[in-house]
Amino acid sequence: MAEIEDGTGITADLVRDLLREQHPDLAELPLSEVEGGWGNQVWRLGEALAVRVQRMDTDPVHQLQERRWLPLLAPCLPLPVPVPVRSGAPSERFGKLWTVMTWVPGEPLDRGEITRGEHAADTLAAFLRALHVPAPADAPADTGRGAHPRDCTDGFDCFLGSLDADVIGTDAADVRAVWDDAVAAPAWEGPPVWVHGDLHPANVVVADGTLAGVVDFGDLFAGDPAVDLAAAWVLLPPGAAARFFTAYGRADEATVRRARGLAALKSLFLLLMGQNGERGLPGGKPAWGPLGRRALDRVLVERPDPPVSRAAADDFLRR
Rank of each mutant, 00 (worst) to 15 (best):
G7L: 09
G9L: 06
I10K: 05
D13G: 08
D13E: 11
D17F: 04
L18K: 02
L18M: 04
R20I: 02
D25A: 13
E28A: 12
L31D: 07
L31W: 07
E35N: 10
R44A: 07
E47Q: 14
L49F: 10
V51Y: 12
V53A: 09
P60K: 13
R67Q: 13
L70E: 02
C76L: 15
V85M: 09
V85H: 01
S87M: 08
P90G: 13
F94R: 06
F94M: 07
W98Q: 02
V100W: 05
T102Y: 08
W103R: 01
W103Q: 00
P105V: 06
E107R: 00
L109P: 00
G112V: 12
G117Q: 02
E118S: 00
A120M: 10
L124W: 09
F127C: 00
H132V: 15
H132Y: 14
A137S: 11
A141H: 14
G146P: 14
P149C: 14
P149I: 15
T153H: 14
G155W: 13
G155K: 11
F156I: 12
C158I: 13
F159E: 09
F159I: 14
F159Y: 15
L163H: 03
V167N: 06
I168R: 11
D171I: 12
A172R: 13
V175Q: 02
D180H: 15
W188N: 10
P191M: 15
H196R: 02
G197Q: 08
H200F: 14
V206T: 05
A207I: 00
A207Y: 01
D208L: 00
G209L: 01
G213L: 00
D219V: 04
A222P: 11
G223E: 13
V227S: 08
A230P: 04
A230V: 06
A231M: 08
A231G: 12
A232L: 06
V234A: 02
L235P: 04
L236G: 00
G239N: 03
A240E: 01
A242N: 04
F245M: 02
A247R: 06
G249R: 11
D252C: 12
E253V: 10
R257S: 05
A259K: 07
A263W: 04
L265T: 07
L265N: 08
L268Q: 03
L271K: 09
L271D: 00
E278G: 06
G280A: 01
G283Y: 02
P290G: 08
R298M: 11
V299F: 01
P304L: 03
P304C: 05
V308D: 00
R318K: 10
